[in-house]
Simulated scan of single mutants.
Amino acid sequence: MSVIPKDQTEQASPNKTKTIRELGSVDISLIRDEILNLPQDLWVIQNDAKPNHFKPLGRTEHIVFQFVRDYDNHLDIVDYPIWQEWKGKIQPILEEAVKPYGYQNGGFSRIMLAKLPPQSKIALHIDPYQSSNYTHKIHIPIQTNLDVEFWVDRKQYHFLEGYAYEVNNKALHGGINRGNTDRINLIFEYFEK
């Protein structure tokens, strides 16, 4: 049984989107090529070590930079060794993406790359964790194609490369890549401390 600090139980984020919120464009030019050129063996090694082996994610591969120790506590964060190599490259993108929230004291958790291979899907699901009430789940497509769909509350969306989108992960959501290229998103959670 996980324990949420008492002061969090009354502070679910009032700014969490109901479905999708476009946060605007972000400059991914300094990391895009490097991410697209990551060797497959690195994806395999990192994916095998990931903490989030959930059936709805299907064939999605992850490179996890930060994650939570306890799924119900977004404040208990673990840095993975690969984060030290990537922090200086990714942190400015995260900071740029979250400017619309205007939080004076924001924090990040669950930072990762997610690769959805061609002709694969993420089943519709709702994130069951208590911590999801306090965080904004944000996707930034690094690579996509016209045949990638994202679904929230049974409504279809297409996310553009280099744009940040908040997704309500407490609503029914999922995705599909019907295209012939990988869909790679930078995904992270943001919250007000």
Rank of each mutant, 00 (worst) to 15 (best):
I31G: 05
V98Y: 03
D72C: 09
E22M: 08
P51E: 14
W86H: 02
L94I: 00
I63C: 02
I122G: 03
S120A: 13
W83F: 02
V64Y: 02
I122L: 07
L94M: 00
E22T: 14
I82N: 09
S29V: 01
A114M: 07
V64M: 01
I31D: 08
V98A: 07
W86I: 00
F108S: 04
N47P: 12
P56D: 10
F108N: 02
L113S: 03
V78M: 09
S29L: 03
F67M: 11
K89H: 15
G58K: 01
N47I: 14
I90A: 04
S29M: 00
L124A: 11
D72S: 06
I111G: 09
I28K: 02
D72E: 11
H74N: 08
D70N: 12
G107D: 12
W86M: 02
G24M: 05
A49Y: 06
K87E: 02
R110K: 15
P51N: 13
V78N: 10
I28R: 02
R59L: 07
P117Y: 01
V44F: 15
S120K: 12
Q46E: 12
A97I: 01
R59H: 07
L38S: 04
K121S: 13
H74S: 08
V68N: 03
D127L: 04
T60H: 04
D27E: 05
D70S: 13
H125V: 07
N73L: 04
H62Q: 12
D33C: 05
L30F: 10
N47K: 06
Y80I: 12
L124Y: 13
R59M: 03
I77M: 10
V64H: 00
D41A: 15
I82K: 10
S120W: 07
G58A: 05
P81T: 04
F67K: 15
Q66M: 05
Q104A: 07
Q119I: 09
D70H: 15
E61T: 11
D41F: 15
L113W: 00
D33Q: 08
K87L: 00
I35C: 06
I90C: 03
Q84F: 13
G88K: 14
D76L: 06
E95Q: 01
E85R: 13
I35V: 11
K55R: 11
L116Y: 03
P51V: 04
Q119P: 13
I93V: 02
D76I: 03
S109M: 10
I45H: 09
A49G: 07
S120V: 07
S25L: 14
S25A: 14
Q46D: 09
K89M: 12
P39M: 14
P100I: 00
W43T: 03
F54Y: 15
M112D: 07
Q91A: 10
H62G: 08
G107H: 10
Y103S: 13
Q40L: 15
H74Y: 08
D33E: 10
Y101Q: 04
F108M: 04
G58D: 02
E96R: 06
